[in-house]
């Protein structure tokens, strides 16, 4: 029973961070109607930024959040403005080709990082990396608890933005009916730039929070793009609430896979659930509200 609870707890904790990854991808999908296949690579870039800040400036990863997130927001905004939006202006280019563009961007980011840092594994070990808190017999890895808390706060902040502010409502309006949003005075192009920035900023937070518990190497990006994709599909494409469910489900599934099957099979469990959902629940796990 303890093992079961323990596994559940670790799954939920990591799931909260996965949710951040999925929400970013979902937002981008909701507004631009594309799958951002550079999502994990953006996260990887954020992880390297955090790594460099730690290695050379001794900056704590939690402090680096305040640098990595804005940096990735900017990178995302630039990608949307300079590489994706121009594609929409040429009639002969299909909108789907934006997705191909994101694949290319992902590759370029990976190779740039490989040139600078090489392919070897890096890691960040803080003084609190191994620290553990107990609640009864259940152990909570402290960095994971903090990371979960931050993920929760960021998600709440995002929801506040989307539901309560004019700008956030404009983002939702653009996702739901772009032409009508423009009639209301929404600069839809600026909204796409903002949305990609927010998506990239959120995945940057996830990367920074995960850094203390993952090894870092350039190809980790592709790995997480796949995860983000799985989460987004699990959550029912385009639903941010769904993405939270998707993230937590994937986290729990991987955690149980690692405990009860084998560490090597944890990704397989995620993929199996992914396939099952595609086959039996094509709408995704939940479609509470499309926000």
């Amino acid at each position: 029973m303890d093992v079961f609870l323990q596994t559940l707890v670790s799954g939920v904790l990591i799931g909260g961070i996965y949710a951040l990854i999925g929400i970013g991808m979902t937002l981008i999908m909701g507004v631009m109607h594309i799958i951002n296949l550079a999502h994990g690579q953006l996260m990887m870039v954020a992880m390297y930024i955090t790594f460099v800040l730690y290695q050379y400036l001794g900056l704590d990863p939690y402090v680096s959040l305040f640098i990595a997130m804005p940096a990735l927001f900017l990178l995302g905004a630039v990608i949307q403005k300079l590489f994706l939006n121009p594609l929409l202006k040429v009639d002969s280019i299909l909108p789907e080709n934006q997705v191909l563009m994101t694949v290319g961007i992902g590759m370029v980011l990976t190779e740039i990082v490989r040139i600078i840092f090489g392919s070897d594994y890096k890691s960040v070990t803080t003084s609190y990396s191994g620290s553990v808190m107990y609640l009864g017999d259940i152990a909570f890895n402290t960095p994971m608890v903090v990371a979960f808390g931050i993920a929760l706060a960021l998600t709440a902040g995002l929801f506040y933005f989307l539901l309560r502010t004019d700008l956030g409502k404009s983002v939702r309006a653009t996702a739901q009916n772009k032409e009508a949003a423009r009639l209301m005075g929404v600069n839809a192009e600026r909204i796409t730039v903002l949305t990609f920035g927010i998506g990239a900023g959120l995945v940057a937070a996830a990367g920074t929070l995960l850094l203390p518990i993952f090894y870092l190497f350039p190809d980790i990006g592709g790995h997480f793009t796949l995860k983000a994709f799985v989460i987004t599909i699990l959550g029912g494409l385009g639903s941010t609430v769904g993405a939270i469910f998707g993230g937590v489900v994937l986290g729990i599934a991987e955690s149980f896979g690692a405990t009860y099957l084998s560490m090597d099979l944890k990704d397989v469990v995620g993929m199996v659930i992914f396939l099952l959902v595609l086959i039996f629940l094509p709408g995704g796990l939940k479609r509470l509200t499309k926000i």
């Binding site: 939702r172 309006a173 009508a180 009639l183 209301m184 005075g185 600069n187």
Partner: peptide, 28 residues
């Protein structure tokens, strides 16, 4: 001018087929 600057001039367009934001409340 771009489409989004028209309404600010005092010209509002109620489009064919309503074009509401379906998953936003009436108030929103």
């Amino acid at each position: 001018l771009p489409a989004h600057s028209i309404i600010g001039l005092g010209l509002a367009h109620v489009p064919e087929g309503r074009q509401l934001f379906p998953e936003m409340t009436v108030k929103e």
